[in-house]
Simulated scan of single mutants.
Amino acid sequence: MKALVFSDEPKNAMEIITYLRGKMDIDVISQENKELPEYGANTVYFYSNGFVDNLGKFLADYIGKNNYDFIFISSTNMGRELAGILSFKLKMKCMPEIFSFEHKEKNITRRFYHGGKTVVEEESNFKMFTVSPGICEAEKADKKSEVKNLTLEKSDYKIVDVKSKKTAGTDIRNAKVIVSIGRGLGSQENIEKIMPLVDVLHAEISGSRPVCLDYKWLSEDKQVGLSGKKVRPDFYIALGISGQIQHIAGIRGSKTIIAINKDKSAPIFEECDYGLVGDLFTIVPQLVEKLKN
């Protein structure tokens, strides 16, 4: 079997290639990145100045002329738009937002459903899929890909200005340890009370949707969850987070989840590996002291 992977974010392409590696031969189209050829694809095609119009035209022509069994598109803003364009142009049905893929007599995929409240497993003969970021942890391969550069037609779009979102620190998706806060923290001023735990663990700080979007205690790029970022740390420590399914959808890839919450019936305790019921402002200083020693 042979698959084409497209992602305008090379990191997502690395994850998809790693996930599919060994199951099928893979070509990938992405923006230039010096590490991408090290993840095991047969051929890596780099493009520049790509927009939905010229990329949509190129991909439709390229897929139409090449016999790929499957098309996997990273579910970014651009990826989702391109998937719609390609579905129309190629008359090809698309299964959206998958986080699991298995090919038997039919394709078996899994994706979150009803806003992340449940997981649906589906059988289909679809050939095109959008893939949720974080499908697995990217790992380099032994072989190196052949690299080719693409020439796209001139786009009708032109960038006249770029205004980056305000970010705070490094990308939490790359963190090995994350300390995450929820409404149970009480106030933005209380963040400084949990920073000694963040510091002693050399962790990144993140938050739930209310913390980042509603109360703005943390910047938007620190939000974890279905509508935020999906993370895969070695340790995820949830402080005062109730654990609604939309948040759990963002942390399922974590190797170890530790929860501290004074509500013993909080849903987070059904998902964590270790849970502590109690006042986080009492427990966190004790943890810090133990870790220092």
Rank of each mutant, 00 (worst) to 15 (best):
K2N: 14
L4C: 10
K11D: 08
N12T: 15
E15L: 07
D25P: 08
I26W: 01
I26E: 02
S30E: 08
E32A: 13
Y39I: 06
F46P: 04
S48H: 13
G56N: 08
K57D: 09
L59C: 08
A60H: 06
K65A: 12
K65W: 10
S74V: 06
N77P: 13
E81K: 15
A83W: 03
I85Q: 07
L90H: 00
E97H: 07
E102A: 11
E105H: 12
N107P: 10
Y113T: 14
Y113E: 14
H114K: 13
K117Y: 14
E122Y: 12
M128H: 07
I135C: 06
D142V: 14
S145K: 09
K148P: 09
K148L: 09
K148C: 11
N149H: 12
L150C: 04
E153N: 09
D156W: 15
Y157T: 09
Y157P: 01
K158E: 08
K158R: 11
A168E: 11
D171V: 00
I181P: 00
G184N: 11
M195N: 08
I205Y: 05
G207M: 03
L213C: 14
K216P: 04
L218K: 05
L218A: 00
S219E: 12
V224S: 01
K230W: 08
K230C: 08
A238D: 05
G240E: 00
G240N: 00
S242Q: 08
G243W: 01
I245V: 11
I248S: 06
I248F: 02
I251R: 01
R252Q: 13
A259K: 04
I260F: 02
A266P: 01
P267W: 07
Y274I: 12
L280R: 05
V284D: 03
P285D: 01
V288Y: 00
L291W: 05
K292V: 06
N293K: 12
